[in-house]
């Protein structure tokens, strides 16, 4: 018993002060929200579009420059490396989540980060949000970095957010993976088992759009094609800070 107490003291208090204090330090090489600087674009250049392995970049009719779909992007930096003019670069902005699919598209002049607040979710789930996680065909990295939020460093329980074992006890689903055909029925049944009113959160490029597996006949190009989605959290996988920030902004706990 004494040993347990001694170890407890040595392990110290580790829960981060975020969101009251500053967010935890991100690594120098972290790839966050892309930034497009249209002014640098050369005429008729399509290097970034060609370089993207998952076709997440298209040409904007409006600006004439590239548009990056962060809901599809796997943050591999291929476009950044391919661009001869430095028109696309990945910032260290971790606030990637949005409650609107359209807001995930980044073009020249896009805001620093997209809006995520949902008024109804703020009203109903603002002080208590219980989630049932459904893993549907991804690589287990998004699951791992969602799970991390339960550890004492992040401790999302302090915001009343918690993963629960049964969909009957949940206010919503947190879905990862592109939704394989083999998981479709299980996901539909789990969704049906969550009592109304309910929300759905898609975490990671796979769950938003199919990610690297987009258009494979074995999967469904993301959760949106099976159930309605209320919050999109981009990344491959998203950093835990990106997920927590998305959840907190969604339920109005931070601005």
């Amino acid at each position: 018993m004494l040993r347990i107490i001694k170890t407890r003291i040595k392990q110290k208090y580790r829960t981060m002060s975020y969101p009251d204090g500053s967010p935890p330090e991100l690594p120098a090489r972290f790839a966050g929200r892309p930034v497009v600087n249209r002014l640098n674009c050369k005429k008729d250049c399509d290097h970034c579009i060609v370089a993207c392995p998952v076709d997440a970049i298209s040409l904007s009719q409006e600006t004439g420059g590239p548009v990056v779909d962060t809901g599809h992007c796997i943050f591999c930096r291929s476009c950044e490396t391919a661009c001869p003019a430095g028109a696309i670069h990945f910032s260290r902005e971790y606030r990637l989540a949005s409650s609107f699919r359209d807001e995930l598209f980044v073009k020249a002049g896009s805001s620093e980060y997209p809006p995520a607040k949902n008024d109804l979710a703020t009203k109903i789930f603002g002080r208590s949000l219980k989630l049932r996680q459904v893993s549907a065909g991804g690589c287990n990295a998004c699951e791992a970095d969602s799970n991390v939020l339960g550890t004492l460093a992040w401790d999302m329980g302090r915001f009343g957010i918690q993963f629960v074992a049964s969909p009957r006890h949940a206010d919503g689903l947190l879905i990862t993976g592109p939704v394989t055909e083999n998981m479709r029925i299980a996901l539909e049944k789990t969704y049906a088992a969550v009592p109304d009113p309910k929300i759905v959160i898609a975490v990671g490029s796979c769950a938003i759009s199919g990610g690297p597996f987009i258009d494979h006949p074995e999967q469904h190009n993301g959760a949106m094609n099976i159930v309605p989605v209320d919050l999109f959290i981009p990344g491959c996988p998203p950093h835990p800070l990106t997920i927590l920030d998305g959840l907190l902004r969604f339920i109005g706990r931070i601005g």
Binding site: G137, N182, F213, H216
Partner: peptide
Amino acid sequence: YQHRGIERA
């Protein structure tokens, strides 16, 4: 359940 067709691709 996680089969997403990688080897084929």
